[in-house]
Structure formats: C-alpha cells, structure tokens
Amino acid sequence: MYTVTGELSHGNANAVVAAGLSALAEGQSEFDLSALTKIDSSAVAVMIAWQRQAIQQGLKLHFTGVPASLLSILALYGLNEQFQLHTPERH
C-alpha cells in the first residue's frame, strides 16, 4: 500500500503525481489517502493521472481513507464513480 501524506495541492501536485507513478511502477495498486492534511482541486487531477497509468499497466487502482473534503470535490465534478473509493469508517 502506498500512503500519501501531508498536503496535496497546486504547489506540490507534480511531485505527488511522480511519487504515485513510481509506486504504481513498483506494482502498488492501493493508495491510502487517510494521512492527507490539506487538499485542493489539484488532488482530482493527481488521481486521474494515477488512474490513467494504472489502466495502462493493467492494474485496478483502489483509494482508501479518502477524506470527506476530497469526496466532496469528486462529487462536485461528478467523478465519484470513476474511482474505487473506500472512505474511513465513522463511529
């Protein structure tokens, strides 16, 4: 499992894409987003880039721990169904 931590925004989106693509090249297909502390709409573009690469590699990409803020952005763009999303359990 590849864990994305900290911020995922316009300022570091390219670096985050590259790190995720490296993880995909190593065969990772589950990306844990639960450690994200700040996101903006750039996160959607990052996820799309990872998804495209996963498809090219024949992998089925899964996102776990998807923060509510990211779910809201994905819903706004009508993209919830485009990804395998697993949200944190709420107690």
Rank of each mutant, 00 (worst) to 15 (best):
A75P: 03
F63G: 02
N80R: 10
A43M: 06
S34I: 04
V46Y: 04
A23Y: 10
G78F: 00
A54N: 00
N12C: 09
T3F: 11
Q84I: 02
Q28S: 14
E81V: 05
F83G: 01
K38E: 13
G27T: 05
Q56P: 00
K38H: 14
T37R: 15
M1E: 09
V4R: 06
L85K: 09
L85R: 00
A18S: 11
H86E: 13
Q84W: 06
E26V: 03
P67T: 08
Q56Y: 06
V44W: 12
G58F: 02
Q51W: 09
H86P: 00
K38Q: 15
L61D: 03
S9H: 14
V16N: 01
K60R: 12
G65S: 08
A18C: 08
I48L: 15
A49I: 02
G6T: 05
L24F: 04
V16P: 00
A13Y: 13
A43W: 09
A54E: 08
I48M: 05
F63N: 00
L71R: 12
L21Q: 14
V66Q: 06
R90V: 13
T64Y: 01
A43T: 10
S72C: 11
A43L: 04
L59I: 09
L70M: 07
A13L: 05
S69P: 08
L61H: 02
